[in-house]
Design a protein around this nucleic acid. Sequence first.
DNA 1: TGCCCCCTGCAG
DNA 2: CTGCAGGGGGCA
Length: 282
Amino acid sequence: MPELPEVETIRLGLAGKIIGSTIRNINVLNPKSFSGDKKLLVHKKVINLFRRAKILGVEFTHLTLLVHLKMSGQLIYQGKEKFVGGHPTRDMFGDLPNKSTRVIFEFDNGGKLYFNDQRKFGWIKLVENARIREQKVFDKFGPEPLEKEFTWEILKRQLVKRKNTPVKVVLLDQAVISGIGNIYACEACFLAGINPNKKTIRLTDKEYKKLHLGIINSLKNGIKYGGSSKTHFVNPEGKKGLFLNYAFVYSREKLPCKICKTPINKIKLGGRGTYFCPACQK
DNA sequence: TGCCCCCTGCAG
DNA sequence: CTGCAGGGGGCA
């Protein structure tokens, strides 16, 4: 799924649509996609949206919905308006609900939020706000890379915890750093000029500084272009993100490097497809 | 720290 | 048909 930039794209897109709206009903089409007592949310008003790692939080008074989209989750909002610019809304979204729709949130104002998830890996959990602290829901996550407290020294300190593991594999570990997934891990290594297979113990301080900037820049670009849509990802308006048009390596096997024209390599690291330029990344 | 697995569907 | 896909929990 959805990595940090995609979840952030959803948060930003959804905020103006559902903050202040009140839940009328929740229709759970796939029981495994939703846990908690949905009746507790009826007549509750959305007061805030936040993101931690790749989890989206929808806050109500005393209660929060935690949403993880995993590989194929989507959150698409349809307002009450049947027509936008003279065209039926289904032209924008495809017919909704569709065969991947797992949960439908209906609001008092007639708006509907569809949780689609083809592969059914995603989940929505209703938790009490007090329990988020008590149950330490977020404790396992490492630092947020777009917070200003995230320095290259912190990056180094975190990565070296797994010193004999390829740097790209460590970047995917949410306990080390939050929010980076397969696309942005590849892109960050490219921007830093680091071979993704290099062990973290072998990185110099200079390389850690470049990797620190590479992480921040790739994530910020992901947000700037509305996320990556290789297959499933769409924003709350049902539209695809454009980041992959600007990616240097991800999903570009055998295509020429945008910098040096060398064909991009694809290897497998930690079981995941990994793309890099063998000339630019040492 | 490395598999297997949870699922569905698409490309090769 | 096999392999692969923005994730990550559980298990040896």
